[in-house]
Amino acid sequence: MKAIDASELRDRLAGLEPIGRGPDGTTRLAWTAELAAAEVWFGEQAGAAGLGVERDPAGSLWAVPDSPGPWWATGSHLDSVRSGGRFDGALGVAAGFAVAERVPGVAVIAFADEEGARFNTPTFGSRALVGRLAVGDVLARTDDDGLALADAMRAAGTDPERLADAPAWLARLRGFLELHIDQTQDLARLDAAAGAVGALASRMRLALTFAGRADHAGTTRRAERRDALAAAARMIVAADELTGDDPDFLVTAARMLVEPNAFTTVPSGVRLWIDGRTPDPERLALWRAELEAAAAVLAGRSGVAIELATASHTEGVTFDLDVLAAIGDLPRLVCFAGHDAGILAQRLPAGMVFVRNATGVSHSPEEHVELDDVAVAAEAMRAALTRLA
């Protein structure tokens, strides 16, 4: 059987890459026309591989063999962040079809809304599959235009009333293996085309709301101000400083919305999201507690009301040792990003193979991999699934 090579992968990606791509990168948000176009590509790939397409209650697409399950599966996701790269997620789905054509009885899955960029619902499809979604909460979340997730799902052809039924589909899987671009320079430093992920770090996304008072920027004295943006800035600094000198505790002020966002007005309101990641789950919980205590002190000192809530939280996970053995002799990595394979690993044997990224840049138009490296990773996946399936 012909090995998976760069030319095949290039041909598979050619039909997907233009979808949602513009001068500022790739944008394929969940439940949009761009994602629907990508799902048409998924159907074409499935048909060419002799697989039937089904959609689960969370909106994830399954390309399944014409044989009784449960199956081993591979894949990733088709949605992107805003102005993202060409390879994040898409690479795993395209390589997945290359593998499934060569290994009988393997399914390919494109999980719904892995990035969570529109409704702050990361790893939505895989969380739904393992029963780890607060269904009422997520369906009520709104995007920047005020549209509720439930309405967006309905408009895209997925019934939100069936979301709670998604866990019934988990029994169709024996395990899951995901190929993904490395979002660090770890493999580049090792001079390795591909690597096996041994574990994922714990991750937490906090949502903070600051309620101050709008006032004249030129006439309001410092002691009279209730500046929501100044308070938010201090919380960003506190979140970073509370990690101490730990190089493996990563904090990002990921998004901020300011009101009224006017040149001559003291900001009255801010919504801020802060992301924290570390391999140490106890340290992550302590960081959150210390940040909440700092918020209470700051609120008393500034006169700005501060609310802090956990928007999402994923415990770290160690991947299945038998899956790692099946992948073979690739360098072992620890990953700080969230992935669908990490969600499924809490319930099923799962694993991940990363592809070298020379710059480490991802979630950006500058994201890049060499397809020859992807072919090495895909062949490792093929060999692993041949052993496992």
Rank of each mutant, 00 (worst) to 15 (best):
T310M: 00
W273V: 10
M204N: 06
A377T: 12
A49G: 07
G43H: 03
G342H: 07
T318E: 15
D143Q: 07
H216M: 08
T264W: 09
E44S: 10
A148C: 05
F87H: 12
R174M: 06
V40R: 15
V334Q: 14
E366V: 01
D246Q: 06
A285D: 14
V130F: 12
L129P: 11
G47H: 07
V266Y: 03
A350W: 01
T32S: 15
R332Y: 07
A217W: 00
I236D: 01
P104C: 13
A228P: 02
G351W: 13
E292M: 00
P331E: 08
T219Q: 08
V237S: 13
D320F: 11
P104F: 08
T121G: 13
A171E: 02
M256H: 02
E8M: 12
A171K: 14
A311L: 15
T243I: 10
T220Q: 02
G105R: 10
R382V: 03
R118D: 00
R283F: 11
D340L: 04
D151H: 05
L286R: 14
W31C: 01
E101T: 11
R347Q: 14
R162S: 12
A107T: 06
L200C: 08
W41A: 10
A107Y: 04
A38C: 09
V81Y: 07
A299K: 01
L242Q: 08
V40C: 11
G276A: 15
F97R: 01
V130W: 12
S83I: 00
A112M: 08
R213W: 04
L78Y: 09
V361G: 00
L91V: 10
I19G: 04
I274F: 00
D248K: 10
P267N: 09
D144C: 04
A155P: 05
F111R: 08
T219L: 13
A155G: 01
W31T: 02
A230Q: 14
E292Y: 07
A254S: 15
A384H: 12
A148L: 05
G157M: 11
I236E: 08
G105Q: 03
E307S: 14
V304H: 08
P23T: 11
R28N: 07
P57E: 08
L344H: 09
R28Y: 02
D159L: 02
S80D: 04
